[in-house]
Design a binder for these strands. Structure first.
Length: 139
DNA sequence: GCCAACGTTGGC
DNA sequence: GCCAACGTTGGC
């Protein structure tokens, strides 16, 4: 059974718009053990919310996993880090800002709110649907 | 193995 | 630009 996740990115570094343009990308540069452990649990077909930190601070769209965790192939990378491949699914008609996430009772448990520095985190099916509805995505 | 110091991230 | 949260590092 597929899981749902939230992936955070700095729009200056790699934006969802760029992902839409590329259609798919390797989600690399995660350098946090907790985030890495979540990355390893991600499976092909899992759906992800894409969140922009920094200036946007909003969930901007969804993506689908096309390859589960594999070692970062960059020889410069020291240590046991992994990445996954994702393809763009759809952009939200209306990006859902952090302030809205915080103001929504159903989303009180979001890890994003409790632990803002985590860059890869699980979300529940219900949270995924709730955020999708707020963003105007058709399920 | 503990804890203080320090660095980084991200929101305001 | 500041501050809070949290992770990492290094001394003991």
């Amino acid at each position: 059974m597929a899981s749902t996740w939230l992936l955070k990115t700095e729009p200056d570094t790699y934006s969802f718009a760029q992902l839409l343009k590329d259609r798919k990308t390797n989600w690399n540069d995660v350098r946090n053990y907790q985030a890495r452990n979540f990355l390893r649990e991600i499976k092909v077909g899992d759906r992800c919310l894409i969140y922009h930190s920094g200036d946007d601070k909003a969930v901007v769209g969804t993506a689908v996993v096309t390859k589960s965790a594999y070692p970062d192939p960059d020889p410069e990378v020291k240590g046991d880090w992994v990445q996954v491949d994702v393809k763009a699914e759809k952009p939200f008609a209306t990006p859902v800002p952090l302030s809205t996430l915080k103001a929504t009772a159903k989303l009180k448990g979001l890890l994003l709110i409790r632990q803002s520095r985590l860059s890869v985190m699980p979300v529940t099916e219900e949270e995924f649907k709730t955020i999708g509805a707020l963003g105007g995505a058709s399920a």
